[in-house]
Computed example of a mutant assay.
Amino acid sequence: MSQLFGEVAGAYHEARPGYPAEIVAAIRAYHGGTPDRLVEVGAGTGLATGTLLGLGAPTTCVEPDHRMARALAERFPQVEVVTAAFEEWTPPAGGVPALACAMAWHWLDPATRNRRAHDALRPGGTLAVFGHRYDYVDPAQRAAIRAAFESADPQRQGDRPDGWFHDDIAGSGLFTDVRAPLFRRDLPLDTAAYLRLVGTFSSQLRRPPALRERVLTAVGAAIDGFGGTVVLDLRTTLVLARRPA
């Protein structure tokens, strides 16, 4: 499943929203300056990479899907790209000062991801895990779009609770000084842009092609029904944690 998004590598980068620049300032302040190296796990096509480069640290990106890794290398030639799963990647001796993961923590092996992240960091190193949560500014839009999804595909898609990766990291007992700043912004999308976004969701990519089309038709009709624009309440959580020195 970690290679699911290679099917839509180009669309993924165009359709998914980027990350607020405030994430860079938060990581730098938490780390106590610019790390001398950053490793990003599950970097995909580089949506978060472009933001993380604002740290000014030499960057290595670890990405298991060769299609995503190729797009990432073309987009950011200054970045070292390693095509491998996190579980197969060997960190340098002594560990790295900072490890980041954006929208990919759930794709890592839940039995080992915290231990691997801990062991990849040098003592005192910084872990930064972040991701978006999509909601709707207007409750009526939320209800209409959810009803459209369910009308086309009644099978319920399980959503992880807010803050799940904070609880996962803090609950591992491997890290100290765990913090979780939240960044919010309104994101208006027209019908076509929203459908492109839906087309990159793992739940949509798992559906058979005919069912994908039914979902897009139903959701598109719902958005057109209230003027052709949906305003997302885009919430980005950043979890910061430290390997004990």
Results as ranks from 00 to 15, higher is better:
30 Y>N: 02
31 H>A: 14
31 H>N: 05
31 H>R: 13
33 G>R: 11
33 G>N: 12
34 T>L: 14
34 T>P: 10
36 D>H: 13
36 D>A: 15
37 R>T: 02
38 L>S: 03
38 L>N: 02
38 L>G: 01
40 E>T: 03
41 V>A: 14
41 V>Y: 08
42 G>A: 11
43 A>I: 07
45 T>K: 03
45 T>S: 09
46 G>D: 10
48 A>E: 12
48 A>N: 09
49 T>E: 14
50 G>A: 14
51 T>S: 05
51 T>Y: 03
52 L>V: 01
52 L>M: 07
52 L>F: 02
56 G>R: 10
57 A>W: 00
57 A>K: 01
59 T>Q: 04
59 T>Y: 08
60 T>I: 13
61 C>E: 07
63 E>K: 08
64 P>Y: 05
64 P>N: 09
65 D>Y: 07
66 H>S: 15
67 R>H: 12
67 R>M: 05
67 R>T: 15
68 M>G: 08
69 A>C: 06
69 A>S: 00
71 A>V: 00
71 A>L: 07
72 L>P: 12
72 L>M: 15
72 L>Y: 15
72 L>G: 11
73 A>E: 12
74 E>V: 01
74 E>W: 06
75 R>P: 11
75 R>A: 15
77 P>Q: 08
77 P>N: 08
78 Q>R: 14
78 Q>N: 12
79 V>Y: 00
80 E>M: 13
80 E>P: 06
81 V>S: 06
81 V>T: 14
81 V>W: 08
81 V>A: 09
82 V>K: 00
82 V>G: 04
82 V>H: 04
84 A>V: 08
84 A>E: 13
85 A>C: 11
85 A>T: 13
86 F>S: 05
89 W>E: 13
89 W>K: 11
91 P>Q: 08
92 P>S: 06
93 A>H: 05
93 A>R: 06
95 G>F: 01
96 V>N: 06
97 P>I: 05
98 A>F: 01
98 A>V: 04
98 A>Q: 00
98 A>E: 02
98 A>T: 07
98 A>G: 05
99 L>M: 06
99 L>W: 02
100 A>G: 02
100 A>Q: 00
100 A>K: 00
103 M>T: 14
103 M>S: 14
104 A>I: 12
105 W>K: 08
106 H>E: 06
107 W>F: 13
107 W>M: 08
107 W>H: 10
108 L>G: 02
109 D>H: 07
110 P>N: 07
111 A>P: 04
111 A>I: 00
112 T>A: 05
112 T>R: 13
